[in-house]
């Protein structure tokens, strides 16, 4: 069964009086446990597609099912609940909360979104920090660690609530080449360890090769025809 399935998916933005199509009727499916990249130049629709898969936006037409849920049926509150339960996010700019420590940033989804009990929460956070190699930095604030370390923490935060799917929008764009590779290696390792599906976007040709499958987006359409992964 596909974890994500899109049929004739389209998204059009209205800018003033003009309709700007960002995604133009695409079909694709992503199987559970895969490590997939959406690639393409800036403006090709990668971020729009990730926003749709992440239930941050609604399609204009077509259907998009994530974990068998038609995301068009989710209202604002239900979408937030769905994201909190099933989807992890890794952002290009890491987006850690500056007033919280590394430990607390990873703990945040369990504390503020899912309400895990304290002991269980602590064990899970330590497990994830250990997995991403940040256990010894647990008490530091985001401004006390490097960009690569921040992204490791962000990966740990995305995985901590055991989501089925992690979406990473240009996760390596703000990292140097070596660090970028290490982050992708870490994401793969996490996929293997936690059986989580990773979907990321990139426009960096060197990074694309790290994906087990790629969907190439060009001007809102899939260039490789939306193959099943």
């Amino acid at each position: 069964m596909s974890l994500v399935r899109a049929e004739n998916l389209a998204k059009t933005y209205r800018v003033g009086d003009i309709d700007v199509p960002a995604i133009k009727g695409i079909d694709f499916a992503i199987e559970a446990g895969s490590f997939v990249a959406f690639v393409g130049p800036s403006g090709s629709g990668k971020s729009t597609l990730l926003n749709l898969i992440g239930c941050l936006d609604h399609p204009t037409s077509g259907t998009l099912k994530v974990l068998d849920t038609d995301i068009a049926t989710l209202d604002r509150r239900a979408a937030a609940r769905f994201r909190g339960e099933h989807i992890g996010f890794v952002f290009q700019d890491f987006n850690l909360i500056p007033v919280l420590t590394v430990f607390e940033n990873v703990e945040y989804p369990l504390r503020m979104v899912q309400k895990w009990p304290v002991e269980k929460r602590r064990a899970q956070v330590l497990r994830l920090l250990d997995a991403v190699g940040m256990a010894d930095q647990a008490n530091k604030r985001p401004d006390q660690i490097s960009g690569g370390q921040k992204q490791r923490v962000a990966v740990a935060r995305a995985l901590v609530s055991q989501p089925k799917l992690v979406l990473a929008d240009e996760p390596t764009a703000n990292l140097d080449h070596d660090t970028a590779y290490r982050i992708l290696e870490l994401m793969k390792k996490m996929r293997d360890e936690f059986k989580t599906t990773f979907v990321f976007s990139t426009h960096d040709p060197k990074i694309m090769g790290e994906a087990e499958a790629t969907f190439t987006l060009e001007d809102g359409r899939l260039a490789n025809g939306g193959s099943h992964v």
């Binding site: 937030a80 909190g84 339960e85 952002f91």
Partner: peptide, 16 residues
């Protein structure tokens, strides 16, 4: 604003 976007994206309910 970005911080609000982040916590909203990772599923923090609007009420929280």
């Amino acid at each position: 604003i970005r911080e609000i976007g982040t916590i909203a994206a990772i599923g923090t309910p609007p009420s929280r």
